[in-house]
């Protein structure tokens, strides 16, 4: 069988009878280990609600969980960074600045209280043992079901001295979407924060000129929020129209 196969196949086809069972790893077959940080619930499998759902999967409800907090030791250089950061924040009088530490897939995330973000950023840049000189970027994530912490702003920091990468995450509720600006410490955050403001409506206190950057100045709303209304495409066929992508039937 292998001899007459053309060269462009992307790998050997499995022999009959040796295939992986197709139902392995289906969401209804994977037990919930309960260690994660719940940010929402997933219902059904096809994005259809109520009586329209004839799939038989309508009753399926699963928690949506992000990786939960990790306990030290975190492994390798991560412990050095965490220890140095905790020491530095203690001596700066903000020992509760880091709410939790998440280590997932070899990347470390420090969840920082938003009122301490400016001070933590300064420590990370200036402390001898930390030296995170370069702010790679900042981006927003909107978790509409994470009550009280709907808006997350994520910063990626790089230390050229030690060749390490960490992630900072701050949250703000939808009701009070304010996060202090780190432009004074990292001038490169200027455009990043404008972009997060433009797309998520996070107001960065202390930013020198917080205006829209990608969307037109008079644009209503913040397009990358999950609750931003998406437009359907009108089709000239008996008055029908294609529903917006978030209302179409699709896997969820």
């Amino acid at each position: 069988m292998a001899g007459d196969r053309p060269d462009f196949t992307t790998g050997p086809l499995t022999e009959p009878g040796t295939d992986v069972d197709a139902t392995d790893g289906m969401p209804e077959n994977v037990p919930d280990d309960g260690t994660g940080e719940q940010i929402g619930r997933r219902e059904g499998m096809f994005g259809v609600r109520g009586t329209g759902d004839t799939s038989g999967y309508g009753g399926l409800t699963r928690p949506v969980e992000m990786p939960g907090p990790s306990q030290p030791p975190y492994g390798g250089w991560m412990d050095d960074v965490a220890t140095a950061l905790f020491e530095a924040s203690r001596s700066a009088g903000i020992e509760h600045a880091v709410e939790r530490v998440v280590v997932h897939r070899g990347e470390i995330t420090f969840h920082v209280r938003r009122e301490d973000l400016v001070e933590v950023a300064r420590l990370l840049r200036d402390d001898e043992k930390l030296r995170f000189e370069l702010l790679s970027g900042a981006s927003g994530v909107h978790y509409p079901d994470d009550a009280g912490r709907e808006l997350h702003v994520v910063y990626h920091l790089l230390s050229l001295t030690h060749n390490r990468r960490i992630r900072l995450e701050v949250t703000a509720p939808d009701a009070d979407p304010r996060v202090p600006s780190v432009v004074a410490t990292y001038p490169t955050a200027d455009w990043h924060e404008r972009e997060v403001f433009d797309f998520f409506g996070v107001v960065f206190d202390g930013h020198p000129s917080l205006t829209r950057i990608q969307m037109p100045d008079d644009w209503p709303g913040h397009p990358q929020r999950k609750d931003y209304p998406l437009g359907g495409i009108p089709v000239e066929y008996k008055g029908g129209s294609i529903p917006p992508p978030d209302q179409r039937r699709s896997y969820n």
């Binding site: 992000m66 990347e107 990468r165 992630r167 896997y251």
Partner: peptide, 14 residues
């Protein structure tokens, strides 16, 4: 049709 599922989490690989 469905695609594969990716475990929850975040990653940044420059």
């Amino acid at each position: 049709t469905e695609g594969f599922r990716v475990p929850a989490g975040q990653a940044y690989v420059p």
